Simulated scan of single mutants.
Amino acid sequence: MSYKDKTYIIFDGDKDKWAYARMKGWKALEHIDFNFEDAHSEYTLTSNANNEYYIKGKLKKRFANACQVVVLIGESTKNLYKYVRWEIEVAQDLGLPIIAVNLDGSKLQNNKTCPPIIRDTYTVHIPFKMKIIKYALDNFPKEFKGKKSNSSNGGRIYPESVYQSLGLN
């Protein structure tokens, strides 16, 4: 299952850290069936974390073992270029499957918040709900790798039947 592989999570560290913390919280609770191997647990940042080249070097090392990427998309994610856009570019260059998680609850590609770099690429768009995130981690990487051309075909969404099967209406 893909959630056992390293997952690199991209997010607005100022405004959307709560969502990343919630995902880590879900993982920590034994009675909840949610797990992912967090690539951020490797190569911790030190006091040099104010140096862009230092930070990007550490982040690239984290990408080395990642098998998929989750982008937590909040209000301002699309406007963040220094790190967020750079991280997405690295993920695309590495050919990693990208799961776009809409913090506003949208099941579709939301052009008001979605970073332009992943609009209309083969990226799955889902709401910030534990069950659908788990489903995407379990299924999308394999689907992505099975595609012949991952840069075309536009955004991917799951049909309503998937949400119903997960108890998400």
Rank of each mutant, 00 (worst) to 15 (best):
K24S: 09
I32Q: 09
I132Y: 07
T7C: 14
K82V: 13
K58Y: 02
Y54R: 05
G57S: 14
E37W: 00
A64T: 11
I157V: 15
K131Y: 03
K6D: 15
E42F: 12
K6H: 14
D93T: 12
G95E: 08
A39F: 10
L108M: 09
A21W: 07
P141G: 10
T46W: 01
G25D: 12
A136I: 05
L45T: 06
N65C: 11
D120M: 13
V84D: 06
D38R: 03
R62S: 09
N65E: 14
I99W: 03
D5V: 11
L59M: 15
E143V: 08
T44F: 09
W26T: 02
Y135M: 05
A49M: 06
D138C: 10
R85S: 08
N48V: 02
A21S: 13
F128K: 00
D104M: 08
I117K: 11
K129E: 14
H125S: 06
G13T: 11
F36V: 08
H31A: 04
S47N: 09
A21Q: 12
V101Y: 02
A91G: 14
L166C: 06
L96G: 04
K27H: 13
N102A: 09
I99S: 01
D14G: 05
A28Y: 08
G155I: 11
N139S: 12
S47V: 11
N51I: 12
K78H: 10
V71C: 12
A39R: 04
S152V: 14
V71N: 08
Y163V: 10
L72P: 02
P141M: 09
W26R: 04
K82G: 03
K142Y: 08
V69L: 09
E75M: 03
G105P: 11
T121L: 15
D14H: 14
K56A: 02
L29S: 10
T46Y: 01
K145C: 06
E87P: 03
L59C: 06
S41N: 14
R119L: 13
S2P: 15
K15H: 13
F63Y: 14
N79P: 00
I73M: 04
F128M: 00
Q109D: 10
K129W: 00
S151K: 10
S152I: 14
N139G: 02
Y122R: 12
N110A: 04
F128E: 01
I117G: 06
V101Q: 01
D38F: 06
G95P: 03
R156C: 10
M23N: 01
